Computed example of a mutant assay.
Amino acid sequence: MKAHVYVTMKKTVLDPQGQTIARALNGMGHTGIAAVRQGKYFEIELAEGISLEAAKAELDQIASEVLSNPVIEEYRLELIS
């Protein structure tokens, strides 16, 4: 089983890197781009035999305590069989 973890800035937090990317894209002629939010992506392979419930609990703890800063970031988990 694998997990994908997506970490992004909360909507209420300014994302200067995303704004810079959006300006660069507009400057390159991609005028249909209104905004960009950048983030981090993690692909985690889980040990064989772990239950779905245990995997979700462990990944939630890892994402909230290690992979993200809960003050300014949010995360989303996807489990893939």
Rank of each mutant, 00 (worst) to 15 (best):
E73G: 01
S68N: 05
I21A: 12
I44Y: 07
L46R: 10
S51V: 11
E78Q: 11
S68T: 08
I80D: 08
H30L: 14
I44R: 04
S81N: 13
A47D: 14
A47P: 10
S51W: 11
G18M: 10
L79R: 05
Q17Y: 07
V7E: 01
I62W: 02
S51N: 10
E65C: 04
Q19N: 13
P16C: 08
E53T: 15
I50A: 09
T20R: 03
E53A: 15
L52P: 00
G39K: 06
H4W: 01
E78R: 05
H4N: 06
T12E: 15
T12A: 13
E65H: 03
A34Q: 14
G29C: 13
Q19G: 06
A54W: 00
N26K: 14
E43D: 12
A3I: 01
L67R: 02
Y6K: 07
E53H: 12
L14K: 04
V66Q: 03
K2I: 07
V36H: 05
Y41D: 02
V36E: 05
A34F: 08
Q38S: 06
H30C: 10
R76V: 08
E65F: 00
Q19T: 11
L25W: 03
F42A: 10
N69I: 08
S81Y: 05
E73A: 01
L52E: 15
N69T: 06
V7K: 03
V66E: 01
L79N: 13
E43V: 14
G32L: 07
E48V: 07
H4M: 12
A57H: 12
